[in-house]
Design a protein around this nucleic acid. Structure first.
Lengths: 204, 204
DNA sequence: AGTTCCTGTTGTCGGTTTGTAAGCATAAGA
DNA sequence: TCTTATGCTTACAAACCGACAACAGGAACT
């Protein structure tokens, strides 16, 4: 559908947009491609617009829009931790190991909640169909009965099901090989599971 | 950290950026807030830049950048189908029921592959820890042994494990209650599973 | 009482950016 | 062979847009 030259131009636009945050002006396009005039850039933009891969707003500067990005939901950046140290929840946050960027709707509508992700290690939640290596997205809020939560136990973060028995909460692994955990003192809940992301096919 | 007025301005910038695709100019900000001068907008932008929530490129039009969006990986828009009709893979695509926007890295590096997602119905893959309601992301490519695939069987798309026995491929449900499927004629593979997204906690 | 920051105003300037007119050469399709 | 689309050029106009100088009231903190 696009000619080679037009594809080159589109790639340049998108690359600049991604790396610099703004769309190049016609004169910046001219400079990059070594055109003697900005009109060459203009006519290319017109061609791209005619073919529907970009939209432009007449008279406005740097007003090139990529339609696919327009009808996209708002994107949330979720920090990924391998392990959450003790301080979580209140004060300074530890540095993330990575980041998952997912649109708000696919996350399952959390309004403006504070969310983060954890890379699962071990198979203690395998009967809840959560595997080692999965990324679990958690929201910082108070847990309800039967929620799956990240809890701080002996200075380590573990994923467990949160259960309340006669007003006393305890934690249960979803794996018969693991015992229940009845908290000795206080129970520190770092987050409540709201979503899960798995890479690769489900065989590990 | 931000004052109320500064937050209002930032919200306006982001809202316009999301809905129109471009960042408003100083005079557009002026108009929206009813300022008598564009200088008011300029000084607000400077304040926002000083506080680190935006960046600006001097001398360039509409050159407001949101730093969080800058160090984000490239985002891929994945169409979600409830059911893939017969024609898939070659010709026209059916209309999607929704869309998942996820960054490329979190998807688990598929280079420039053609990907789509399927909403899982039924529990035939439960032993592979894929639940009803999960979104399975698939790539259109040839399956390898033990891949999980979306295959067309009797005009319906189903998720199964792809196995090869003595050079003859067949499909296996990951649920003991379901029988193996040995294809009568040809086996149409619509996609190979590359990722999975689950909303809510893993209890349904 | 003095200083700083926030939130504005009026007015002006100059670079940036898009837009348009007119033309030319080549390749592709009817 | 005629026509259309592509991919450029030179030249000029018009708007868009950011930047600056100078000033001012009010709130907050010292």
């Amino acid at each position: 559908m696009l000619t080679n030259r037009q594809q080159e131009l589109l790639d340049f636009l998108k690359e600049r947009h991604r790396t610099t945050g703004i769309v190049p002006s016609t004169r910046e396009i001219q400079e990059y491609f070594g055109f003697a005039s900005q009109t060459a850039a203009v006519s290319h933009l017109r061609a791209l617009e005619r073919k529907g891969v970009i939209q432009r707003l007449a008279g406005k500067a740097r007003a090139v829009i990529f339609p696919d990005e327009l009808d996209r939901e708002e994107i949330v950046d979720i920090p990924v931790y391998g392990q959450i140290p003790a301080g979580m929840g209140s004060d300074a946050e530890p540095e993330a190991e990575g980041q998952i960027s997912l649109d708000k709707t696919s996350l399952g509508l959390s309004p403006k909640a504070n969310v983060f992700a954890l890379k699962v290690r071990g198979d203690s939640m395998i009967e809840a169909h959560i595997l080692s290596g999965d990324f679990v997205v958690l929201e910082q809020r108070n847990p309800r009965n039967r929620d799956i939560v990240a809890a701080l136990i002996d200075g380590e973060t573990t994923l467990k099901r949160y259960l309340v028995d006669r007003n006393r909460p305890y934690l249960k692994a979803e794996n018969a090989d693991y015992p229940d955990l009845i908290p000795a003192r206080e129970l520190i809940i770092q987050g409540v599971m709201v979503a899960l992301l798995r890479q690769g096919f489900g065989a590990r």
